[in-house]
Nucleic acid binder design. Structure first.
Lengths: 147, 147
DNA sequence: TATTGTTATACTCTATAACTATA
DNA sequence: TATAGTTATAGAGTATAACAATA
């Protein structure tokens, strides 16, 4: 029975690394990267077009980086830029139907993977895992109050 | 009580991301990056100099990348390259005293952080967390049998 | 004067390919 | 011929600074 806190944290990184590698392979096969996929998912979950400035806040990255990401997304036909109706400085970014389909695929894959990895465990164990994770997150300066 | 597997996996990434950001800030203050820190830790834990080829295997990266990392480590005085005694193609990489000190600092920080984040929890909960993590790791193709 | 997005530039992680020296 | 490490090049994430158009 391992109770060393350092070993427990190491597991978090090992898990994130291994699962992350798998996700990245899957994304790469579709011409996506984690950063680009996140843009797709944000736009999909909001179900509305966002101004690039908003995207940079949601994604916690610079406006410059949003420009790069949206450039690629647009070049691949997943997203489109449209002029903001009332603010001529701003640019709205929305999903194409292909982008929406891709975001939905990502969501489905995510759930399937989670089920494959945790589905065999008793719900009680999963809940305990989440409780510990939440405890750790509480120790870290809480940044995003659930809005 | 959250038992949704997808939500549980999300916690893993949230944890890794938040803790990773903290670590990265700490590393940056010392002129380090995660990749460079890993080299330091590998060399420190092995307590011996390694040939760059070995490093590339341990770090699971290309020999080319090892060259870059060691270049930086050497420029900062954390590591030194020495010729291999019997194979003139090979280059041994070892830690300087400063590099050793830095690696020890990293280890200490890691344990302190783990204790701060998990120390208040009952050992039973931590053990349960690790068991779930190990279960998930088992579901993933096991790559590294404990040597 | 403040804000939106872009061009310009740079650092790091990471990879592949071609090449040199050596085995 | 195979191996160790390097130069050359490239894509991606990410950043800051300067700038144009607009508010």
């Amino acid at each position: 029975m391992t109770t060393d806190p350092a070993a427990a944290l190491d597991k978090v990184f090992e898990l994130a690394g291994r699962i992350g590698d798998l996700m990245q392979s899957d994304l790469a096969e579709h011409g996506l990267t984690p950063a680009r996929a996140e843009v797709l998912l944000v736009l999909h979950h909001r179900r509305e077009s966002l101004v690039q400035r908003q995207l940079s806040e949601v994604l916690r990255c610079t406006p410059r980086h949003v420009t790069s990401l949206v450039d690629t997304l647009e070049a691949h036909g997943w997203a489109v830029r449209t002029p903001h109706p009332s603010d001529r400085r701003a640019t709205l970014v929305g999903l194409t139907s292909r982008g929406t389909a891709e975001a939905e695929r990502l969501d489905t894959e995510r759930r399937a993977a989670a089920h494959a990895l945790l589905g065999k465990l008793p719900a009680r164990d999963v809940a305990g895992f989440v409780r510990v994770a939440d405890h750790v997150l509480d120790q870290l300066t809480p940044q995003d109050p659930p809005s």
